[in-house]
Nucleic acid binder design. Structure first.
Lengths: 214, 214
DNA sequence: AAACGGTTTGACCGATAGGTCAAGATGATG
DNA sequence: CATCATCTTGACCTATCGGTCAAACCGTTT
């Protein structure tokens, strides 16, 4: 199996191996489903090294999440910070979001685990989600009302839910899905679906607000 | 604190107490975040009773999930099995879905934990989700193509993601949400948002398919 | 070759996990 | 009152958890 290059800040090589192993296992099996021994073994390293480099298991998890977080934020910041109409920018952000998740499929799983499990890392997850919430709210502020059922914050919830849930739900429903939901073709089709959704929602929103302004 | 009546099959009272405690704690803290001791303590019962009535921790969890599952299926089955146009029925299903989740807010958390954590209960979760997937697919089959980016299965993913993610994400983002996302007023607003979304998507879908048929 | 800082190891620790069990309580039936 | 099945308990077991530590390793510098 080829070892994919990950997003790595400059750190001892061994430390990065451990971080990679932790990310992979925690993403698959959950934070509590993986022991420090498992991580060390999977990284081909003595267990004590895990603590030598990363202090404790919660700290290790934070570093795993932080690494994804920075990459995620950078990727989406670039997409938000582009010229064009609101619609164009929304589509660009959506593509950037999907690009990132497709490259790091573990990330939404890690986040969802913390969100639904109420672990000790919820504050960190909140910090991770906050900028995107803020950006999308600002991005939609031109065409969405500031309160009520069509407020931007609702669209943030809906869109992020639609995007991420595919990566947690679809694998489980693979059998009745028909084809492999994670194949490149299936992912491309999903992307099309989401772009269509975004288009439909945005134009519906514009009609609505235009109609109410009269 | 008033003890709310839960969905209970006929079983010894003590056994139900334990099941209730397990559901509550596992929903809040996650399957691995809760010990048999915690559950027993929270139910005001000796720890050995947990195993006397429910065998093992995984079996206990299955029973927790199963209880919600049956109630969930019944509630939605009734909504699916109503007369009217596709649009009307979709709205009815959506309302039934929201009614159920609002009454049992722990349920989507439990499901999401298993979906994202890859625990040993994924097969059970799959069994839980399968009928809804099937029903919604059938319901939308009249107006959605059977394959491609607008296929019914995509809408299932999108809609269920939008609905459930609110209950896992919103609490974490409560601070920047402004008001309490779980207050009755906020839940009503969320419901309006989702109905608007469903309307917009369905009419967009009908336009699309009507245009292609020409 | 001695001394040194960063790295790596295996052996060990207390705490807690899920689970068992034999013995007691309890309440209905003869 | 004795019996019997169901229920309830505290004491106990083993396995594993996250984490520690002193000693060994190793490449550099003096």
């Amino acid at each position: 199996m080829a070892r994919a290059k990950k997003i790595n800040r400059s750190r001892p090589e061994r430390a990065i191996q451990i971080l990679d192993a932790a990310a992979e296992l925690m993403g698959e099996l959950g934070y509590d489903g993986v022991s420090a021994r498992d991580i060390a073994e999977h990284a081909g390293v003595n267990k004590a090294l895990v603590f030598y480099y990363w202090g404790s298991k919660p700290e290790l998890f934070e570093k795993v999440l932080e690494r994804y977080y920075h990459a995620h934020r950078d990727a989406l910041a670039r997409a938000f910070d582009t010229p064009g109409s609101t619609t164009e920018r929304v589509h660009r952000v959506l593509d950037a979001y999907l690009d990132f998740i497709e490259e790091h499929r573990i990330y939404p799983r890690l986040v969802q685990q913390q969100l639904s499990g109420g672990g000790p890392h919820r504050e960190m997850v909140r910090k991770n989600l906050a900028p995107f919430f803020h950006w999308l709210t600002e991005l939609l502020s031109e065409i969405a009302p500031s309160s009520g059922p069509l407020a931007a914050r609702h669209f943030y919830m809906s869109i992020s839910g639609m995007v991420t849930s595919y990566f947690t739900v679809a694998p489980v429903l693979a059998e009745q899905w028909g084809s492999d939901p994670m194949s490149p073709a299936a992912l491309a089709e999903r992307r099309e679906h989401l772009h269509w959704l975004a288009d439909t929602l945005l134009s519906g929103l514009q009609q609505q607000t235009a109609g109410e302004e009269e």
